[in-house]
Amino acid sequence: MVGPRFRRREMLAALAAGTLVPKTALAKDYIDLEWGDLVPPGQPAIPPVIMDLIQHDGPSLSSEQPPSQGVRTEWNGKIVRLPGFVVPIEYSGTGVTAFILVPFVGACVHVPPPPANQLVFVTTPEPYEGSGLFEPVNVIGMFGTASMTTQLADIAYALSAEHIERF
């Protein structure tokens, strides 16, 4: 498995198509996305198997991740805003510099992860000083498809955050 720092550099290089948009422009120049927008038409955003309660003493939850049925590419290279919950992956001091943005509380930790097309790997150049695990946030930044694997789940999308705000 490739280390998180290498994946982050690789993902940032893939998303960087020039200079990033200044924060002042982000206030009005982004596309609002919802989690259902990330799955191909006709697919449920959250598979029924995940909605059932599971026992927390069972095997690794990553082994129970449902397969992804494709991604949508129309927002590659676009500045988007996506709400979700923070599952920290990498820290710098007390701030989070890489995390998985998930569509519901408990995803990837307390219940099996959603399909890869319902997970977004987020990196931020400035550590985000959040309030803890599963904090609800809005993330604004450059979006794209980026297949990667972490210890928690397979992930189909990446977002280079320019602005993170509490939801």
Rank of each mutant, 00 (worst) to 15 (best):
G3Y: 09
P4H: 13
R5H: 14
F6S: 06
R7I: 06
R7L: 08
E10W: 08
M11P: 05
L15M: 14
A17H: 10
G18P: 09
T19W: 08
T19C: 08
L20C: 02
V21E: 10
V21Q: 04
V21C: 03
K23V: 15
T24G: 00
T24C: 05
A25E: 09
L26A: 02
D29G: 10
Y30R: 08
E34A: 15
G36H: 11
V39K: 06
V39F: 03
P41W: 05
P41K: 07
A45T: 14
P47F: 11
P48L: 10
V49W: 09
I50P: 07
I50S: 13
M51H: 08
D52K: 11
H56L: 03
H56W: 00
G58M: 15
G58F: 05
P59Y: 01
L61Y: 14
L61W: 07
L61D: 02
L61G: 00
S62I: 03
S62G: 01
E64I: 04
Q65M: 08
P66V: 12
P66W: 07
P66S: 14
P67V: 12
S68T: 12
Q69W: 04
Q69L: 07
R72S: 12
T73A: 08
T73W: 04
W75N: 04
N76D: 09
G77C: 07
K78G: 02
I79H: 00
I79P: 00
V80D: 07
V80F: 03
V80M: 01
P83M: 03
P83N: 06
F85G: 03
F85K: 03
V86I: 13
V86Y: 00
V87F: 08
P88N: 02
P88E: 01
I89W: 09
Y91I: 10
S92G: 08
S92M: 04
G95C: 04
V96Y: 00
F99L: 02
I100V: 06
V102G: 02
V102A: 15
P103E: 05
F104I: 06
F104G: 05
G106V: 04
G106W: 05
A107E: 09
C108M: 07
C108W: 09
V109G: 09
P112E: 04
P113H: 12
P113F: 12
P113S: 09
L119V: 00
V120E: 14
V122S: 01
T123E: 14
T124Q: 01
P125S: 14
E126M: 01
P127Q: 00
P127C: 02
E129D: 15
E129S: 09
G130S: 04
G130H: 05
S131L: 11
L133N: 04
F134D: 01
F134T: 00
E135G: 01
E135A: 05
V137M: 05
N138S: 10
G141T: 06
G141D: 06
G141M: 09
M142S: 08
M142R: 10
M142G: 05
F143C: 05
A146W: 11
M148V: 11
M148N: 03
T150V: 11
Q151H: 15
D154V: 02
I155S: 06
A158C: 10
L159H: 03
L159W: 12
S160W: 07
S160Q: 15
A161C: 11
E162Y: 09
E165D: 12
